[in-house]
């Protein structure tokens, strides 16, 4: 697969093949998906109380940490953009938001599917659920803010500022089950709140399926997806340049 990239020094467009590392990452991602699904579906034992539905946890929790990584990349990209004013850091920030938003939505949807049989409802206004939903909405607001600004430099600056500020909702979602005792969301690592419903023990089988999945979803998946997204953003920039060049000729 080949694509366009901007040669900064000459400001001309040339074709670059997909980097070898990205090819490798793509292969690892596909294999990782298969392996983690296998571990969760077949290797881990069935939960005595919850049955098969508990297996969704092996995707549910790791995707949140994937979103965490991606939103963390947005903070990093934002800070570096404000310091260095290099467009590539802003591309990292956008990629982080879009990938993180997708993973956060998977996290919300899988949680909802699990909650239907266990809590007997698709959705409840639990503190954890509410803050997770607000977190997703914050990053949707980030995208709205971006699209509301025409000037490219201003857009990148404001997006960087907001991307850094928005991370507070991610931290809130992370700590809320530990500071609000009235949540019914279970805590798997450490003691669950008293009224948590649907908790289960982190036994050896659970850990064996969870740990690889957690590592995979919080590193390889967001990094690979963000890389593709950054390349897409590059291509869009090239397209924009071509358009401008063509229009100025005509």
């Amino acid at each position: 697969m080949a694509t366009f990239a901007v040669d900064k020094t000459k400001n001309t467009i040339r074709l670059t093949a997909m980097p070898k590392v990205l090819q490798g990452l793509t292969v690892i991602t596909v294999l990782g998906l298969i392996v983690t699904l296998y571990l969760g579906y077949f290797n881990a034992g069935t939960d005595i109380q919850q049955g098969e539905i508990q297996r969704i946890f092996y995707i549910h929790m790791p995707t949140f940490f994937g979103a965490f990584t991606a939103f963390g990349a947005t903070v990093l990209g934002g800070m570096l953009y404000l310091a260095k004013r290099d467009d590539k850091w802003d591309r990292l920030a956008v990629a982080g938001v879009e990938v993180g938003l997708a993973l956060a939505l998977i996290n919300l949807i899988t949680g909802s599917i699990w909650a239907r049989p266990i809590w007997n409802t698709w959705w409840t206004w639990d503190p954890r659920l509410t803050s997770a939903a607000i977190m997703a909405l914050t990053y949707a607001a980030y995208l709205m803010l971006r699209s509301g600004i025409d000037n490219l430099q201003t857009r990148r600056r404001f997006a960087s500022v907001y991307g850094i500020l928005a991370f507070s909702t991610v931290i809130l979602t992370l700590v809320i089950i530990r500071i609000r005792p009235d949540t019914i969301h279970p805590v798997v690592i450490g003691a669950s709140p008293q009224n948590a419903q649907g908790s289960f023990e982190a036994t050896r089988g659970v850990v064996l399926a969870l740990l690889p999945s957690l590592l995979f979803y919080s590193t390889i998946v967001p990094i690979t997806l963000m890389w593709y997204r950054i390349r897409l953003e590059n291509m869009l920039d090239v397209l924009e340049q071509k358009k401008i060049a063509l229009l100025s000729e005509g």
């Binding site: 803050s131 803010l145 928005a166 507070s168």
Partner: peptide
Amino acid sequence: QTRAREALLPIVMLPVVLP
């Protein structure tokens, strides 16, 4: 400074003041 002006503030501010 954005196109939507006043309409955008609640959307960007409410999530951030949630804590």
